[in-house]
């Protein structure tokens, strides 16, 4: 890709210093970086909130599968001469609907759900590879699809991402409480009048949108870095739903921005940095939680 080589030469000139103000100016001097920071914030907002529910519901595998579904979407869109974004969204949302439709109802449905998800994932990866093989020329952007790239983000992309995020978060705000109920306690929620199946389908579609957004940065293979890792970190730190949700969004934002800045200064893939920052946070949180747990136990025992 042309832009990649160009940005590489630019970034090579950028050196990190102790002067934060200068660093920030350096990072934000190019429009593509500004776009990436705004789009990253939008994706973080969405992934932090939707990812928190994914962790609560134990749907991380579904998230990963929807990312795999986004891969043939993006490669197929490029093959047909469309914007990759169209493919990401179209396929991720269709994949969500497919999973919801194929998932069995009734007792034991939860366990068999993961088998459905696995089947859809395998088919999606095969389809993506098929598109890649059809179109030899785009192999150079294959790594961008799989591991992420932030250089291609245009102002139009930012607009699309922001509007989608606004819609998705609006819907999430409407279904938030019944979704929480249906996630932790589906049978009582059903008895209380929550349309559990409809809410679950809607959630999977929102998850598909979040996956499509995150794929822009992290690539389809590293989506969980943004969608699940900050949420898991937040959940390790607090069991309060409202605090956890806000913390998850905040951590996703820090992860994305730190990852983007690190990628800029090191000229290394953004997916690597986003994942590393997120994972470091997760490790710290788990360590803290375990130390705190041991300490509490000792106090109780005393």
């Amino acid at each position: 890709m042309l832009t990649e080589a160009w940005a590489g030469s630019v970034a090579a000139a950028a050196r990190l210093s102790w002067d934060l103000h200068r660093d920030l100016r350096l990072v934000l001097q190019y429009p593509f970086m500004r776009n990436a920071f705004v789009a990253g914030a939008v994706a973080a907002l969405m992934c932090g909130a939707i990812g928190w529910f994914a962790v609560l519901r134990g749907e991380t595998y579904a998230a990963h599968t929807l990312a795999s579904v986004a891969f043939p979407g993006a490669s197929g869109a490029v093959y047909l001469g469309l914007a990759p974004l169209v493919g990401y969204f179209g396929f991720a949302v269709a994949g969500a609907a497919l999973i919801a439709w194929l998932s069995p109802l009734g007792p034991g449905g939860g366990e068999r759900h993961s088998a459905t998800v696995g089947a859809v994932q395998a088919m999606a990866l095969a389809l993506g590879f098929w598109f890649v093989s059809l179109y030899q020329g785009f192999l150079s952007s294959l790594s961008g699809f799989l591991f992420g790239s932030f250089l291609g983000v245009t102002r139009d992309d930012v607009m699309v991402l922001a509007i989608t995020a606004l819609l998705a978060l609006g819907l999430l705000a409407i279904v938030g409480r019944p979704l929480l109920f249906a996630s932790v306690d589906p049978r009582v929620a059903e008895a209380a009048g929550v349309p559990v199946r409809a809410v679950s389908l809607l959630y999977l579609i929102l998850l598909g949108c979040a996956v499509a957004e995150a794929s822009q940065f992290t690539g389809v293979l590293l989506v969980l870095a943004l969608l699940v890792v900050p949420a898991a970190t937040a959940s390790a730190l607090t069991a309060r739903p409202s605090v956890g949700l806000v913390l998850s969004v905040g951590l996703a934002l820090v992860t994305v921005w730190a990852g983007l800045a690190a990628a800029y200064f090191t000229n290394r893939p953004v997916g690597f940095w986003v994942t590393s920052v997120g994972f470091a946070g997760y490790g710290l949180a788990r360590g803290t939680a375990s130390v705190r747990g041991r300490w509490t136990r000792r106090v109780v025992a005393a």
Binding site: L56, L172, V188, A239, R240
Partner: peptide, 24 residues
């Protein structure tokens, strides 16, 4: 792995079916 407090679960018994996302 279920990271939600007991009291949150109890509270859902009151208003869990209502639409919206309350921020305490």
């Amino acid at each position: 792995s279920v990271r939600i407090r007991g009291v949150d679960l109890v509270r859902l018994g009151v208003d869990g079916h209502r639409w919206g996302t309350p921020l305490p």
